[in-house]
């Protein structure tokens, strides 16, 4: 079972629906006991870094997450959940979780697309991911696949944690982490077949880890 962490940040149900469709058991929860029993965590999020961190700290979920990760439980961060795994976000000037070293950057209005026109902000729509290193989340996914993005800030982790990058006005990190602690700036639950494949790959990894323990 996967635990979808509930910290009142945006649309958690769309991740749950995608997992239901894949017949992957999942629960939306903030309960420590349920989280402890899960095989893996999904840390989604839509909204602003400031209020998300306030909710996490108030509920103590930040500590629960940190402990689970330290104990080796796999986690997948999505969108805002991808950004706030880092140390700091300029959005609301927010110190964030610090589970992966790095900060967030922001798209600036001076950036232009490849056709020379100024970029729209937010970065909203379908874009590709160029893998910088092998990552089992992407097993069986065609390299030309596109994923759905909606964001104005982007993760900028320390280079060794960059897994994949995307180009929008500039190159930015769209997938980061390390084995068992991954994060995607795009929404796999809204990225059609390649996104569903990525969620399946994550669950397969979680089950392997759980069985090995």
């Amino acid at each position: 079972m996967l635990a979808i962490l509930d910290y009142e940040a945006g649309n958690l149900t769309s991740v749950k629906r995608a997992l239901d469709h894949l017949s992957i058991p999942a629960t939306i929860t903030a309960e420590k006991g349920v989280i402890a029993r899960s095989q893996g965590l999904i840390f989604p999020g839509v909204g602003a870094a400031g209020s998300a961190m306030a909710n996490l700290r108030r509920s103590g979920l930040d500590m629960v997450m940190a402990a689970e990760i330290a104990a080796g439980k796999p986690m997948l961060g999505i969108c805002l959940g991808c950004q706030i795994l880092l140390d700091y976000s300029p959005e609301n000037d927010t110190p964030t979780l610090g589970l992966i070293p790095g900060q967030c950057g922001v798209f600036t209005p001076d950036l232009t697309e490849e056709d020379g026109l100024p970029i729209n902000i937010p970065h909203m729509g379908w874009n590709t991911v160029k893998l910088k290193k092998e990552c089992r989340l992407f097993a069986g996914i065609a390299p030309e696949s596109e994923f759905y993005f909606v964001h104005s800030f982007f993760p900028a982790p320390d280079p060794e944690f960059v897994i994949g990058t995307t180009r929008y006005g500039r190159e930015f990190c769209s997938v980061h982490g390390r084995d068992g602690l991954w994060a995607t700036q795009f929404h796999p639950e809204k990225s059609g077949r390649p996104g569903l494949q990525l969620l399946s790959n994550f669950f397969a990894y979680c089950r392997e880890v759980a069985h090995a323990q």
């Binding site: 629906r17 469709h21 909606v150 929404h187 059609g192």
Partner: peptide, 8 residues
């Protein structure tokens, strides 16, 4: 729709 269609 939400339970069958995985695009925005």
């Amino acid at each position: 729709v939400a339970s069958q269609i995985f695009i925005p």
